[in-house]
Amino acid sequence: MSCHKVSLTVNGAKYAENAEARMTLVDFLRDVLDLTGTHVGCEHGVCGACSVIFDGKPIRSCLIYAVMADGHDVITVEGLEEDDGSLSPLQDAFWENHAMQCGYCTPGMLIATHQLLQENPSPSESEIRDAIGGNLCRCTGYQQIVEAVQMAAKKIKDNCV
């Protein structure tokens, strides 16, 4: 068995733990670091439930081994709240618009759209749909998710002005 030291930053905190080479990042986050907010839906890269932000970009954490994340920076859904612990405008808009039902895809959706808003503060509907194009939701039909992102974008903009 090949075991490796994995040192990485998750949601601003530093961790150093051992992991077998074959352990994916999502299993590492969930089983070793106990960060169970990131979900597993397919383990073969299609559903997006496992999305995390990796060095500033959303990726699928089931498609990268934990050892490959050594020395890197990860943000999970648990890291999306504001510094004071309050909900981010995006989280709040997801709540306000009921952008979920079972909540299983929600962490992935938040990760994907969080990054979208960082890069594109006023996305069009089709840009939003594109950003979540790799995240399957079986409950919502996506509409209230799109509405939530639109509301969050507006709120963020209004707050800046």
Partner: peptide
């Protein structure tokens, strides 16, 4: 009215069967 259960889902604090250890 905001749906009660959503609060835990948006913060990654849902408690799904696979989360139990």
């Amino acid at each position: 009215r905001r749906v009660k259960e959503n609060r835990r889902f948006i913060t990654g604090r849902g408690r799904f069967a696979a989360d139990l250890k």
